[in-house]
């Protein structure tokens, strides 16, 4: 991604964030126990500061764009081997697996869910589906369960399956 459009997106996102945060901040209830600053005091300051900095970033980017319109067309920096769109696409797959894990773990329980998580992520990242992959997933899940569930005694999510035992 070229630097200028990068800053444009960054500035715009920060602007939206600041606006949303401020909108929530002004709704913070004032209380009889309030001090001079109040519960909403710092949030308002932070929101305004973010708003201001975001505008500065946008303005700076806009000026730079006016000064050298060609910069936008300039090739991406060498440091970034993978285009941003591809990065986001690939990453969203991982995020989706994470969300799926969150959705199924309360129902199927920790051990099956974490096995599936390892399996899915490894396959997604290019491990060839094979018995070996399945074996490694189960072994990895067992090691984690041994550590967290058995050794540390953390009550990992049980799920419906746990009731059968």
């Amino acid at each position: 991604m070229p630097p200028l459009s990068r800053d444009l997106i960054g500035g715009a996102t920060a602007l939206l964030l600041a606006a949303a945060y401020l909108a929530l901040a002004v709704q913070i209830r004032s209380s009889a126990r309030d001090d001079a600053i109040g519960a909403a005091g710092l949030p308002k300051i932070l929101g305004v500061a973010m708003l201001a900095l975001a505008l500065v970033l946008l303005l700076r980017t806009g000026l730079a764009w006016l000064r050298a319109g060609r910069a936008l067309a300039a090739p991406a920096e060498g440091g970034q081997a993978v285009p941003a769109r591809r990065q986001i696409l690939r990453a969203s797959g991982l995020v989706a697996i994470g969300i799926l894990y969150l959705l199924i773990v309360p129902h199927v329980g920790y051990l099956p869910a974490i096995t599936l998580l390892i399996l899915a992520v490894a396959a997604y990242q290019g491990a060839t589906p094979s018995w070996r992959l399945a074996g490694i997933s189960i072994a990895g899940a067992l090691v984690l369960w041994l550590f967290f569930g058995l050794l540390l005694g953390i009550p990992m999510p049980g799920g419906a399956i746990a009731h059968w035992f």
Binding site: I114, I118, Q125, L144, I154, P157
Partner: peptide, 25 residues
């Protein structure tokens, strides 16, 4: 270890460890 497995294991490790803090999804 090979990267796919490493990524998968780190992901699983992070999810297990973070759950342990408050037992909270």
């Amino acid at each position: 270890r090979p990267k796919p497995y490493l990524t998968a294991f780190i992901y699983a490790l992070v999810f297990s460890g973070v759950y342990s803090i408050n037992h909270s999804l």
